[in-house]
Simulated scan of single mutants.
Amino acid sequence: METLFFLLTTLLLISSSVKSKPDAASDHDLVRSSCVHASYPSLCFRTLSSYSGPADTPRDLAQAAVKVSLSRARKVSTFLTTRVTGKSQRERVALSDCVEQISDSVEELSKTLRELKHLRGETFGFQMSNAQTWVSAALTNEDTCLDGFEGVDGKVKSDVKKKMTNVAKVTSNALYMINRLNESRR
């Protein structure tokens, strides 16, 4: 009898100390409803529904979207600096400019993520303005990189364009999530 009582008490303590996680369906519903009007809704849903961190609030989603964008920007930066070489002088100059632009984007997205992690009520508007400005600048950098390849054809241009377009799409979705977060606060 004492063993049974001990077992039941132990099970009760264990079950009360385990934090219940909301079901995946509710997480997917929040992501789906948040992504429906994003610039790239299917990409938004795919990247944020597979995100491994918390995605329970608009703030979580904005942070997750910026993390996705930052991760992809870092991968493109590595790709551009280690695996791509231009054949012509024009390609080399364009690549060099892209390396600089993507580096700036990584910095701006990093600042945005730091800002979103430390939002405070009294400075929320200012912080959101910073985040919107930095993500917009990252988008501009990504476009500027591609502008450098104007008049250039070939594999280097198509490889860079493919990578940069992907980063620009997730960055655009990140900006959308930041705007949603800002609007949800009003």
Rank of each mutant, 00 (worst) to 15 (best):
S136P: 02
S136F: 07
S136M: 09
A137Q: 06
A137M: 10
A137F: 06
A137G: 09
A137C: 02
A137W: 03
A138E: 01
A138Y: 00
A138C: 10
A138K: 02
L139Q: 07
L139Y: 03
L139D: 06
L139T: 00
L139V: 05
L139F: 04
L139W: 03
L139H: 03
L139P: 00
T140G: 12
T140Y: 07
N141I: 03
N141P: 00
N141T: 03
N141C: 09
E142Y: 12
E142M: 08
D143Y: 11
D143R: 13
D143W: 07
D143L: 11
T144M: 06
T144V: 08
T144I: 05
T144Y: 11
C145D: 06
C145T: 04
L146F: 00
L146H: 03
L146G: 04
D147S: 10
D147I: 08
G148E: 07
G148N: 05
G148K: 00
F149C: 04
F149T: 05
F149N: 05
E150L: 12
E150S: 14
E150T: 15
E150D: 15
G151I: 09
G151P: 08
G151L: 04
V152R: 05
V152C: 12
V152Y: 07
V152S: 10
D153L: 15
D153E: 15
D153I: 08
D153V: 14
G154H: 09
G154T: 13
G154N: 10
G154V: 08
G154L: 13
K155I: 12
V156G: 09
V156T: 13
V156H: 08
K157Q: 14
K157W: 08
K157I: 01
K157V: 05
S158I: 08
D159T: 11
D159Q: 11
V160Y: 01
V160R: 04
V160G: 01
V160C: 04
V160H: 06
K161T: 15
K162Q: 06
K162L: 07
K163V: 02
K163G: 01
K163F: 10
M164A: 10
M164C: 00
M164W: 07
M164R: 05
M164L: 15
M164P: 00
T165R: 10
T165G: 06
N166K: 10
N166D: 15
N166P: 00
